[in-house]
């Protein structure tokens, strides 16, 4: 006769219950909400009609693809700028001879704990053509001609915001990689030294392959974070994500649709449809990573 192992259930229960109540139920309820519409003050089941409108109606689909395209660019900037800089900073910080390493580490990490609202507002002031210090600083080094109201121009606004976000969050990849670098045993590096591998080649040939799993985790965190982003754009450019929707990402598009904006009334059902589409995009990205990349990554045991 098998004994029922109650203790497993008991230990799992709190986490499962809390997670179900605050994450799983709302998630499925959102997916369900996307299948309804409001007709004459009553909620009616319409099946996939909301998705048909979202992708089939030119007015909606244009906004959706614009937001998705902007979101991808936002992500590309993070991957191309934030993560390499984070890795480089971590590599520098893990040098044993570096002085004030603890100070640099804290200074670079501090923006991460600031609120989006503060970051958005502070950078808006810094870059402001009227009161900002950016024009003055460029003027001081004779490069005033390079200055433009970056946040107000369609061509540059999104990239500027992405770089602000990079400035804020570069501390996270730095910390994770730093921890991974510290966990590499000295014996391996010393063995490499015996074989003549030192300095930069030690980084490329020994350390980098060993921290690849961490880089993978950072990439997926960046991906999920970027496709869920909303706060910085909303704080800096407002819900209309100007100029001319050039900084509109999925999060701001969802907010505008779900809650409404100015004379546009909120539509929770179309909003839920957009949220479901966001969920699908993120799920797809995470699946590609989990099944396509992570399973092929080689792991080393020390």
């Amino acid at each position: 006769m098998k004994r029922v192992r109650w203790h497993i259930l008991v230990f799992l229960a709190p986490a499962v219950l809390v997670y179900t109540a605050v994450m799983i139920i709302p998630l499925f309820n959102t997916l369900r909400l996307a299948l309804y519409a409001e007709v004459d003050q009553a909620r009616v089941f319409v099946g996939l009609q909301n998705f048909r409108t979202l992708f089939g109606n030119a007015v909606w689909s244009e906004q959706f693809w614009n937001a998705l395209g902007n979101n991808i660019w936002f992500f590309v900037i993070h991957m191309a700028v934030q993560n390499p800089i984070g890795i480089a900073l971590a590599a520098l910080l893990s040098q044993r001879r570096l002085r004030f390493a603890a100070f640099y580490r804290s200074a670079i990490f501090i923006p991460t704990i600031l609120s989006f609202v503060i970051v958005g507002f502070a950078w808006k002031l810094i870059l402001s053509p009227i009161w900002g210090i950016a024009p003055g600083m460029l003027d001081a080094v004779g490069l005033k001609s390079l200055y433009a109201p970056w946040l107000g121009r369609e061509g540059t606004a999104l990239t500027t915001l992405a770089l602000i976000s990079v400035w804020q969050f570069v501390g996270i990849p730095m910390m994770l990689i730093y921890a991974a670098l510290l966990s590499i045993p000295d014996e391996i590096l010393e063995a490499g030294e015996c074989d003549g591998i030192t300095g930069w080649s030690a980084f490329w040939k020994i350390k980098l392959p060993l921290i690849l799993p961490s880089i993978g985790i950072i990439s997926i965190l960046t991906f999920v974070g970027n496709f869920n982003a909303f706060d910085l754009i909303y704080a800096a450019q407002g819900a209309l994500a100007g100029p001319d929707f050039s900084t509109d990402i999925l999060g701001t598009f969802l907010y505008r649709t779900f809650f409404g904006f100015q004379l546009q009334l909120g539509d929770p059902h179309m909003g839920a449809a957009i949220a479901s589409a966001m969920f699908a995009v993120i799920l797809l990205g995470v699946c590609i990573y989990l099944f396509g990349i992570q399973t092929r990554m080689r792991r080393y045991q020390f």
């Binding site: 402001s128 053509p129 009227i130 009161w131 024009p135 433009a148 109201p149 970056w150 107000g152 121009r153």
Partner: peptide
């Protein structure tokens, strides 16, 4: 409109 009006916000205009 002033220089850099593209990035000038409503409170900026009021203050100017």
């Amino acid at each position: 409109l002033g220089d850099g009006y593209e990035a000038q916000t409503y409170p900026d205009s009021q203050n100017i």
